[in-house]
């Protein structure tokens, strides 16, 4: 009984405040990312590395066309650059004058995630690592979270891929990473910031009674990126490269509009104005005018 009322009282006092007021759950880490769109060449290595690391099923042409693809990380490509030449794309007879713009989109690990509160069974929730986790085995597949993700970065197992004619015919099954569940049909999944690598690094650090070092965790996409456009690290670690990059770009968590001294800085978060508070910072693409 005491625990009940104690917990309820604690619930009132500790947790009624939002993160801005500092009344939030104590974070062990706050994993964040910086993606330099000027360095990103759109080569797709990250996406394939993600398939390899995270046991993502390939679906084939028909299902892909039906938009049932499973990629956690998609590299989007746009031909217009409204900030530089608005409307340039409208002249159908002209040729492209610049290259395309590439945008690697993985789960933005929002700190005020829109997917979390709507899950009926709390299969998606916020971890003390600042991650937007998905517990596959708890998921019942209501797909509300995916509807509510403004980034459309949640993918659903519309089919079973574990059969022999599925995504991993023998012996391809042998490649599956045992550190990650192979998701069953009817389960939502998404980018986890390679939580298995984070977990391994944290376990290792704990075994050695130390903190996780910067650069100790590398996500699969970051590790393979040929131009090193992706940076990953702990935003609570003031010495990490990611924190420094966020500071340099004067972008802070917990805000939907950054008050920056220098408006020409390149850092921005996609759909920041929706107040989802994403953990992925993009650096604007640079173009010669």
């Amino acid at each position: 009984m005491s625990s009940l009322f104690g917990n309820i009282l604690k619930g009132w006092t500790d947790y009624t405040k939002g993160i801005e007021e500092g009344g939030h759950h104590k974070y062990e880490h706050m994993w964040g990312m910086v993606i330099d769109l000027d360095k990103c060449t759109g080569c797709n290595a990250c996406s394939v590395a993600c398939y390899a690391e995270n046991n993502i099923a390939t679906v084939g042409e028909e299902k892909y066309k039906a938009r049932q693809s499973m990629q956690w990380l998609r590299v989007e490509r746009y031909f217009d650059e409204p900030d530089i030449d608005p409307g340039a794309i409208d002249d159908e007879n002209a040729m492209q004058e610049r290259g395309a713009s590439f945008l690697p989109m993985m789960c933005q690990q929002c700190n005020a995630a829109t997917c979390e509160p709507v899950c009926p069974v709390a299969a998606t929730y916020h971890t003390p690592d600042g991650l937007n986790a998905q517990i596959y085995n708890r998921c019942i597949g209501s797909r509300y979270c995916a509807n509510n993700c403004p980034y459309r970065l949640r993918v659903f197992n519309f089919y079973s891929y574990t059969d022999e004619d599925g995504a991993w015919p023998e012996p391809m099954k042998q490649q599956l990473n045992p550190d990650i569940t192979v998701r069953e049909k009817g389960v939502m999944e998404k980018c986890t910031f390679c939580i298995q690598r984070i977990r391994a690094a944290k376990d290792k650090a704990k075994m050695e009674n130390r903190k996780v070092k910067d650069d100790e965790v590398k996500t699969a996409c970051q590790q393979t990126c040929p131009t090193q456009a992706i940076m990953f690290g702990d935003l609570l670690n003031s010495e990490s490269k990611v924190t420094q990059a966020w500071e340099r770009q004067q972008v802070k968590l917990g805000k939907y509009k950054q008050d920056r001294e220098n408006p020409k800085l390149r850092g921005y978060r996609v759909f920041e104005e929706l107040n989802t508070d994403p953990s992925v910072l993009y650096l604007e693409r640079v173009r010669e005018e």
């Binding site: 938009r67 797909r143 993918v155 659903f156 049909k185």
Partner: peptide
């Protein structure tokens, strides 16, 4: 038996 894909739902149209 087949999964929700049978209903032709997709990543945009989860419902």
């Amino acid at each position: 038996m087949y999964g929700m894909g049978a209903a032709l739902l997709n990543t945009s149209h989860m419902w």
